[in-house]
C-alpha cells in the first residue's frame, strides 16, 4: 500500500472511529444511570438523557464565562482533554498501529498521563464563587485564624489530582503492561495477533474471533482487577472520586465549565469511558475497534459495554473513599498488577 492510500485510509478510519465512538459514548452514561437506578429501586432517566441530550442541551445554553485565573487556558484545557481522549481511542484502531508510537504501550501511557495532568490544570485555574470568594463575613472580628492562606476548593482538588497521579493511577499502568508481557512485545499489533491470529488475514466482512484471549489466562484475569479499578480511578468515579467529592470540592476543577464547555467536558468524560473500555477489549480479548472490519467493530462496541456496566454497579454500592483508604487500595492493586506481570512472563 502506497503512502497516499495509507494516509487516506488512516484519516477515513480515524474519522469514522471518532464519530461513531463519540455518538456511542453518549449512550453509555444513560446505561450507567439505568443500572444504578435499578439497583436503587428507581426507574432512572431515559437512556439518552444523561449523555446525548445533556450534551445537546449544554451546547445551546447561554454562554457563561468561567471565573478562572487564566480563562483562555482554562477553556482550552477541556478541548485539549477531548483531543487527548480522541487520540487515545485511536489506539484500538489498527491503522494507527503503524504510526510512530501509536502502536505501542508507550503512547497509551503517555496520553493517559496528559489526561491526568489536565485535571491539575483545570483545578489550579478554576475559582468559583462557591468557596473562598463567597461574600461572607469570614474575616470579621473574633473569627478563627485570620490571615491564613485561603484556598479555592478547586485548587484543593488539583492537589488531590497530583496525589492520584502519583499513586492512584499506578494500578492501571501495571495492568496495561500485562498483555504486552504475554505478547512479548511493546506493539499492540503483536498483542492482538497473539490472541487473534486470524484478524490480520481475515476479509473485511469476516468475524475473526480470538483463539487465546489474555483475559482468560491467570495473569490476564488478575490484571483485569487493577485495570478495572484503575479505569474507575481515571474516570474519577466512586469509590475513587475524591477529586470531585461533592460534599467538599463539589465538581473539582471542572466546576466552572458551563454551556459549551460543559458539553465538551461531558464528551471528554464519556469518550474516555468508551476509549479505555475499547482498549481493554483490544488488549485483553484481541478484538480491535476497526472501522473497516464492520463485524469486529460492532463486537468491540458491544463488549465495551461490560466495563461501564460493572462501573455502574460499583458506583451504586460504594461510598467515596478518602486517601486513608485509597493509598492502601492502590498499593494492594499495584501488588496484584506486579503479580500478574510475573505470572505473565511464564506464558
Amino acid at each position: 500500500m502506497d503512502t497516499i492510500s495509507f494516509t487516506l485510509l488512516l484519516i477515513a478510519s480515524s474519522v469514522i472511529a471518532i464519530v461513531i465512538a463519540t455518538l456511542y459514548s453518549l449512550v453509555l452514561p444513560g446505561i450507567e444511570r439505568k443500572v444504578q437506578a435499578r439497583i436503587q429501586q428507581r426507574i432512572g432517566p431515559p437512556i439518552l438523557t444523561p449523555g446525548f441530550w445533556s450534551v445537546i442541551k449544554f451546547t445551546y445554553k447561554e454562554k457563561v464565562e468561567p471565573i478562572a485565573q487564566m480563562p483562555r487556558l482554562y477553556k482550552c484545557s477541556v478541548y485539549l482533554g477531548v483531543v487527548v481522549v480522541a487520540f487515545l481511542l485511536l489506539f484500538s484502531t489498527p491503522y494507527w498501529w503503524a504510526v510512530l508510537s501509536w502502536g505501542s504501550i508507550l503512547g497509551i501511557v503517555g496520553l493517559l498521563k496528559i489526561e491526568e495532568v489536565i485535571y491539575v490544570f483545570m483545578g489550579s485555574q478554576s475559582q468559583s464563587i462557591l468557596s473562598t470568594s463567597m461574600p461572607m463575613p469570614d474575616l470579621a472580628k473574633g473569627s478563627k485564624h485570620i490571615g491564613t492562606r485561603r484556598e479555592f476548593v478547586e485548587q484543593h482538588s488539583a492537589e488531590r489530582a497530583i496525589k492520584m497521579m502519583a499513586i492512584g493511577s499506578l494500578p492501571i499502568y501495571l495492568a496495561l503492561i500485562v498483555p504486552f508481557v504475554v505478547g512479548k512485545s511493546i506493539l499492540i499489533s503483536d498483542v492482538v495477533s497473539f490472541q487473534n491470529p486470524a484478524f490480520f488475514s481475515a476479509p473485511w466482512y469476516g468475524l475473526p474471533l480470538p483463539s487465546h484471549p489474555i483475559l482468560f489466562t491467570v495473569p490476564g484475569f488478575l490484571a483485569t482487577i487493577p485495570f478495572f479499578l484503575g479505569y474507575t480511578i481515571l474516570l474519577n468515579e466512586k469509590p475513587f472520586s475524591i477529586l470531585k467529592a461533592k460534599i467538599d470540592v463539589i465538581e473539582g476543577g471542572v466546576l466552572e465549565y458551563a454551556s459549551t464547555l460543559r458539553a465538551a467536558y461531558y464528551v471528554m468524560r464519556n469518550l474516555l469511558l468508551f476509549a479505555l473500555s475499547s482498549i481493554f477489549v483490544t488488549l485483553f480479548i484481541g478484538i480491535p475497534f476497526d472501522p473497516f472490519t464492520p463485524f469486529v467493530f460492532l463486537l468491540n462496541m458491544l463488549l465495551s459495554i461490560i466495563l461501564p456496566v460493572c462501573l455502574a454497579v460499583l458506583v451504586a454500592f460504594s461510598p467515596i473513599l478518602t486517601f486513608r483508604q485509597i493509598y492502601p487500595v492502590a498499593i494492594g492493586l499495584s501488588a496484584i498488577g506486579v503479580l500478574a506481570m510475573i505470572l505473565a512472563v511464564s506464558i
Binding site: 462557591l130 468557596s131 473562598t132 463567597m134 461572607m136 469570614d138 473569627s143 478563627k144 485564624h145 491564613t148 492562606r149 485561603r150 484556598e151 476548593v153 484543593h156 461533592k246 460534599i247 467538599d248 463539589i250
Partner: peptide, 24 residues
C-alpha cells in the same frame, strides 16, 4: 501552624441548609 483555609457554603450543592464551614 495552619497551612491553609478551605471554606464551604452557605451556598453549596451538598449542604442541605445554609451554613458556612471553614476548615483550617
Amino acid at each position: 501552624e495552619i497551612e491553609k483555609e478551605l471554606s464551604f457554603g452557605p451556598i453549596h450543592p451538598a449542604l442541605l441548609e445554609p451554613y458556612r464551614i471553614r476548615l483550617f
